[in-house]
């Protein structure tokens, strides 16, 4: 059997490629996508981050009547280093905002954020100087769950929505092995700043 050196090619699936070796590489990558997504979506460990009354509903979601361990998220972690998803349960005060951002930064990639309840998502009734008008001004939010507080079923629905989002993920672009340049970073920060400004 002739010896052949195989190369793993990471490219966009729409790019035309020559040679069977490269095609095989792509097939492996796509099926890995599904596997990784499936694994990540079904073991979302939430971070214990209750800020107000929504945390009570979050606790009852974890309790036996609603039981999020059916979806693989029963392991509430007290440290951000072991958590996958941050459930912001409650109003975020301006004093809490730096801590929230720090905890988010300490979580390992990949990480997701669920904004639970009206106060965390938009400020709710607390349209005043003390409360951040939406946690998405501080961290990127993946799923918003409205309600005051959302019932455990509504939160479970939010978690299922997040799982759907994770399962749809494609890795072709994520696995690009190109170091980020200074230009990329400045463009990204400009986009986030624009997004923050649009909220007002």
């Amino acid at each position: 059997m002739p010896k052949r050196i195989e190369t793993v090619v990471m490219h966009d699936s729409t790019t035309p490629v020559i040679g069977s070796t490269q095609k095989a590489g792509n097939i492996i990558l796509t099926s890995m996508d599904a596997l990784i997504n499936q694994v990540q979506a079904n073991s979302l460990w939430p971070l214990t981050f209750g800020l107000a009354c929504c945390a009570i509903e979050m606790m009852s979601t974890a309790a036996s009547r609603f039981d999020i361990s059916r979806f693989g998220s029963e392991a509430f972690r007290a440290t951000p280093r072991q958590a996958d998803v941050m459930i912001i349960a409650g109003r975020v005060s301006k004093k809490m905002a730096p801590a929230l951002r720090q905890i988010y930064d300490q979580m390992p990639e990949p990480k997701w954020v669920i904004s639970m309840g009206a106060c965390a998502s938009s400020g709710g009734v607390y349209n005043n100087y003390a409360i951040v008008q939406g946690a998405d001004q501080i961290v990127p939010v993946d799923v918003y769950v409205p309600g005051c507080p959302p019932s455990p079923e509504a939160l479970i629905f939010g978690i299922l929505k997040l799982q759907e989002k994770i399962k749809r993920r494609k890795y072709n672009k994520v696995l690009e092995l190109k170091p980020r340049t200074q230009e990329d970073i400045s463009v990204e920060s400009a986009i986030t700043r624009e997004g923050a400004l649009n909220e007002f």
Partner: peptide, 9 residues
């Protein structure tokens, strides 16, 4: 109907 969660503001 409580299933209101979504991705975008």
């Amino acid at each position: 109907d409580f299933e209101l969660a979504n991705y975008k503001r």
